[in-house]
Amino acid sequence: MPILYTTEATASGGGRSGRSVTADGVLDVQFTVPKELGGDGARGTNPEQLFATGYSACFLGALRVVAGQKKVKLPDDTTVTAKVGIGPRDDGQGFGIEAALTVDIPGLDRDLAEALVAQAHIVCPYSHAMRTATEVPVSVA
């Protein structure tokens, strides 16, 4: 697969209670652990929120590409909401994530909306990775 864009982010500190910064410095976030995961609920973000924002934005982009290919004008107020959850895996070896998307395309025929969303689910790289459990290479620097 030819790669068209690559970015990097580096996490430091306590992981879920640390900091992460992209190589270009555009994104610089402080992580906090949600109360549901044993944290103090301090204001900050967490990996699941970042995954949800990335997935929803990427899926909306894929939906716009698909709609454009089909010559369908999506309303400007079209939205994609990603719900991301984390919990212990059934195998007891760690944690897993789950995701669900809700797409709102006001004023568009339901059958057409469902067809566009189904095609966007194929096009979106986040959906593809979630569906195929893409293997991630891990190395030690």
Rank of each mutant, 00 (worst) to 15 (best):
Lys83Glu: 14
Thr10Phe: 08
Gly44Val: 10
Thr79Met: 11
Thr79Gln: 14
His121Phe: 12
Pro88Val: 03
Ala62Arg: 03
Leu101Lys: 03
Tyr55Leu: 08
Asp77Ala: 05
Phe51Asn: 03
Phe31Asn: 12
Gly94Leu: 10
Leu27Met: 11
Asp91Ala: 06
Leu27Ala: 14
Val80Phe: 05
Val138Lys: 08
Ala120Ile: 04
Glu8Leu: 07
Asp40Ala: 07
Gly96Ala: 14
Arg89Thr: 04
Ser12Gly: 11
Arg131Gly: 11
Met1Gly: 15
Val103Leu: 02
Thr102Ile: 10
Val26Cys: 13
Leu101Phe: 04
Leu63Arg: 02
Leu37His: 05
Thr32Leu: 04
Phe95Trp: 11
Thr134Asn: 10
Ala120Tyr: 03
Glu36Phe: 02
Ser56Val: 06
Ala42Trp: 01
Gly92Met: 12
Leu50Arg: 07
Ala113Pro: 00
Ala23Ser: 13
Gln30Lys: 14
Asp76Arg: 09
Phe31Gly: 03
Leu112Thr: 05
Leu4Met: 13
Asp111His: 01
Pro75Gly: 07
Asp90Ala: 15
Thr134Val: 13
Thr22His: 01
Leu4Glu: 15
Ala42Glu: 13
Asp111Leu: 01
Val117Met: 04
His121Ser: 11
Arg64Glu: 10
Leu74Thr: 09
Ala62Asn: 05
Gly41Leu: 05
Thr81Gln: 14
Gly96Thr: 08
Asp90Leu: 09
Arg43Asp: 14
Leu101Glu: 08
Ala100Thr: 12
Leu63Trp: 00
Glu114Gly: 00
Pro2Gln: 15
Thr134His: 09
Gly54Gln: 06
Glu8Asn: 06
Thr7Glu: 05
Pro137Met: 08
Pro88Arg: 14
Ile105Cys: 01
Val117Asn: 00
Lys83Asp: 12
Ala129His: 15
Phe95Thr: 10
Pro2Leu: 12
Phe59Arg: 01
Leu112Ile: 00
Arg64Val: 02
Ala115Gln: 04
Thr22Leu: 06
Asp90Ile: 08
Thr45Met: 01
Gly15Tyr: 12
Leu60Lys: 00
Pro75Trp: 01
Gln69Tyr: 06
